[in-house]
Design a binder for these strands. Structure first.
Lengths: 341, 341
DNA sequence: CATAACCGTGCACACGTGTGCGCAATCAAC
DNA sequence: GTTGATTGCGCACACGTGTGCACGGTTATG
């Protein structure tokens, strides 16, 4: 039942375990004859190095902890995919945990990671409060925040994200250019900071164009429900005799809104334009295909992991803010005649 | 820079590290006075147990390895969510890795898990060949296969899955009852076994009803592309002067097919019925909402993890095959007049 | 008061690896 | 042939934790 260790190999080869260890690691002070013999015995016995013992000895686990809010969210699914790919490629094992948008669980997960001596941590959608950040700062694990919902400016903390404000600006420019003068923003309270930035960029840009304050309404869902359902519900609260365009926190909410519109016969985009955020896979396959502010999701995950690796390697790094791009599809069109002021 | 260990606590409390260890673990042979003092010093110093050292000592890591084909796939996202939830609740850390449908990578990941001494492994969508299974059997790690693409009947191997054949039967019954007499199956070659079972259940049932062989055509995508795109492409290859119903390997393919149909003006469900598989979140929000064979995805993940925990606890277990259910929505309807024989 | 039972703690080892240091053997140089 | 360098390997310890055993001290018992 016991697994084969270097001690077992040593016994067979009639050398000490030190010699076996050195031979396996390619130390050049071991003679070729002995080394090849050891390697052969190792494969014969089916030896597998014990990563736990190695970790203890080397005080390093080659392990990364990733905590996200929800793995089943299509956005995070892609991000995790990017993180995993780079992690795998660099021989780091990946711990995954989900926080379900609960900051205390987020911290709890991080503590578990700490106990397991992960080399580094990536936190998605961080909603940690100041007190929690202080606790996190005490355990000095290199940490990368990915699309953080709060500013964590501490030494040893790094960040990768997209410019949410710029995304809001893009949406506003696009819809304004199409002639929309009564608009709505459908937000998400589960992600306070990014929600606010997208909303702000959107609203500020429109105001800059001269849009009166009462011509822009914003609805933020209070619930933790599924985004698709939230979008459906928020869309039903809108007065469509005025509003001709919706900008949604993300694609799931937009797709939910789109479903509501079709179910009550609102013609998208002839009567109503809808713009989403993220550019999830489904966005190009809805009917009509969704105009959206695209985030490079997989790249976001890859970048976060690469940044973390650089930190671990002691290289100088800089935080990265990626820029979102506007992807125009069929869900947005010129405002219907007679609605512009 | 060194982290605080029980040795450090021992020094402060002027006892031996054995006493500290016992106090922390609640051993009743330590006097109350000493124990409380030790606990206080522990929190003062900010002690965190070293899970690596514990693992080495106890020959058990409280760690589970999960390997899936693609985290970004909406189906697997939900499954991972279920696995993670149960894992977390039982204080097991979860290693995640993706195989990208490559059996050799699947095995490679398992070997890494083995090196890290995971207590158990869950393999999603296993496509391991016989040789790989033999290798896997040599390393005696309790393993649960989740919706396996092959029969792995070995001692120490367990399985959780759904009855794909029954799913195919359900789809056939539903579409036949609606009067469809020319049908097509849009499959996926990335998942050979489940694809075959769904196709077989579908075809056998229809033949049982007396459907002539040439009235059912099957298309299997040869590529590794995104399912949504595969569905779109496969749907364009169909002759719609005959075919009035599509049964698709999964919802993503069905949604892709649906998108193609709308883009060329085929009315779903008036002209064409579409049935998917899985019941992903998006299925109820497409237009029309997708009729589909539902899998309990989160429950599947939870069940797999619970089965694994039972195995680890030495309890007797039995493999579980869950039964899919038909969810009728708006994408399926009676066959258009004049098409039935 | 002597002996036994019991309670609280420390010693020492183990888990599996990696590595600094030393030691023996071989070889080269003068 | 003595000295010095070089090569190849083992000894012993460390990483942090848990636990069997022994041992000293206190209390109960006769």
């Amino acid at each position: 039942m016991r697994r084969v260790s270097i001690e077992d190999i040593a016994r067979h080869a009639e050398v000490s375990h030190s010699t076996v260890s050195r031979a396996l690691r390619g130390n050049k002070r071991i003679s070729l004859a002995v080394r090849t013999q050891i390697l052969q015995i190792a494969t014969e016995l089916g030896y597998t190095p014990n990563a736990i013992a190695q970790s203890l000895r080397q005080r390093q686990t080659n392990t990364i902890g990733l905590v996200v809010t929800d793995v089943a969210d299509p956005f995070w699914g892609e991000v995790v995919k990017g993180v995993e790919a780079v992690s795998m490629r660099n021989q780091k094992a990946l711990f995954l945990s989900a926080s379900q948008y609960d900051p205390s669980r987020q911290l709890a997960v991080i503590e578990v990671f700490h106990q397991r001596w992960v080399d580094g941590i990536i936190v998605g959608d961080s909603q940690l409060g100041d007190a929690q950040i202080v606790r996190l700062a005490r355990i000095k694990v290199p940490t990368v925040f990915l699309n953080s919902q709060a500013d964590h400016a501490y030494p040893g903390f790094h960040a990768v994200g997209i410019d949410n404000y710029a995304g809001g600006v893009l949406a506003a420019q696009h819809l304004w250019a199409l002639g929309h003068r009564h608009l709505a923003y459908l937000g998400s309270t589960k992600r306070p900071a990014s929600n606010q930035m997208r909303s702000l960029g959107f609203a500020a840009t429109l105001r800059g164009y001269g849009l009166p304050a009462n011509a822009l309404i914003t609805h933020h869902s209070p619930s933790l429900e599924d985004d698709l359902r939230i979008g459906y519900e928020l869309a039903r609260a809108i007065d469509y005799t005025q509003t001709t365009a919706l900008f949604c926190y993300n694609d799931s909410i937009a797709l939910g809104a789109l479903t509501y519109c079709r179910s009550v016969g609102i013609d998208v985009p002839a009567q109503l334009s809808i713009v989403g955020f993220d550019d999830v896979a489904m966005a190009q396959f809805s009917m009509p295909a969704l105009t959206t502010i695209a985030q490079p999701k997989v790249a976001l995950g890859e970048t976060a992991m690469q940044l973390l690796l650089a930190v671990l390697a002691g290289q100088p790094t800089i935080d990265t803010i990626l820029t979102p791009t506007l992807v125009v599809r069929q869900s947005s069109a010129p405002a219907p005649k007679g609605t512009a002021q």
